[in-house]
C-alpha cells in the first residue's frame, strides 16, 4: 500500500515504534500517520481530519506529542515513536489511563481515544496532579463526537490519582 510508486521521490527510513525497529521505504510525501497505519499496519492511530484539527492522530515523537498527519514520515527518520499500541504492558495489562477510561466511560465509539490517550500521557507526565480545568485545557485540541468529555476528564483525574499512588 505504501510501496513507493515507480519513479516517485522515495527514501529508506528507520523508525523505532513502540520499541520495535522498522526499516521502510516511503514516498517522501507520505505522512507519518499513513506510514504507521498502512506501512506498518499500526491502525490504532486514527485519522479524523488530516489537517491538524481533530487530534485523533496524535503520537509521541521522541517523547513529545505531535499530530502525525502534519509530519512527513521522512521527518521521523531515526525517531522513537509511541502510538496507542505501545501503552499497554507486554502481557496485555492496560495502562492505568486506559483502565480509567474503561471505568469512567471515557469512550464510546473510540475514534478519538488514541489521540486522547497519547495527549494525556504526555500531559500527566508533566502534571501528575492536575485539576479538571487543566485537563480540559490539555485536551482542547482533541475532538470527541460522542462522550461530551465528562468521562474523559473524570478518567484522567482518576488515572492521575492511581499513577501517583503507584508510580
Amino acid at each position: 500500500m505504501t510501496a513507493p510508486a515507480p519513479g516517485a521521490d522515495a527514501r529508506r527510513i528507520t523508525l523505532t515504534v513502540n520499541g520495535r525497529r522498522h526499516d521502510v521505504e516511503v514516498e517522501t510525501r507520505l505522512t507519518l500517520a499513513d506510514c504507521l497505519r498502512h506501512g506498518l499496519g499500526l491502525t490504532g492511530t486514527h485519522l479524523g481530519c488530516e489537517h491538524g484539527v481533530c487530534g485523533a492522530c496524535t503520537v509521541l515523537v521522541d517523547g513529545r506529542s505531535a499530530r502525525s498527519c502534519l509530519m512527513l514520515a521522512v521527518q521521523a527518520n531515526g525517531a522513537a515513536i509511541t502510538t496507542v499500541e505501545g501503552l499497554a504492558a507486554s502481557d496485555g495489562t492496560l495502562h492505568p489511563l486506559q483502565q480509567a477510561f474503561q471505568a469512567h466511560h471515557g469512550l464510546q465509539c473510540g475514534f478519538c481515544t488514541p489521540g486522547m490517550l497519547i495527549t494525556l500521557i504526555e500531559f500527566l507526565g508533566d502534571h501528575p496532579d492536575p485539576d479538571a480545568a487543566a485537563v480540559r485545557e490539555a485536551i482542547g485540541g482533541n475532538l470527541c463526537r460522542c462522550t461530551g468529555y465528562q468521562g474523559i476528564v473524570a478518567a484522567t483525574l482518576d488515572a492521575a490519582r492511581r499513577m501517583r499512588a503507584a508510580p
Binding site: 491538524g52 487530534g55 496524535t58 515523537v61 513529545r64 506529542s65 505531535a66 499530530r67 502534519l70 509530519m71 495527549t119 504526555e122 500531559f123 490539555a138 482542547g140 485540541g141
Partner: peptide, 9 residues
C-alpha cells in the same frame, strides 16, 4: 498558540 501537540512542532 494552538495546542501542546502543535506547539511541540
Amino acid at each position: 498558540v494552538g495546542h501542546r501537540q502543535t506547539r511541540n512542532r
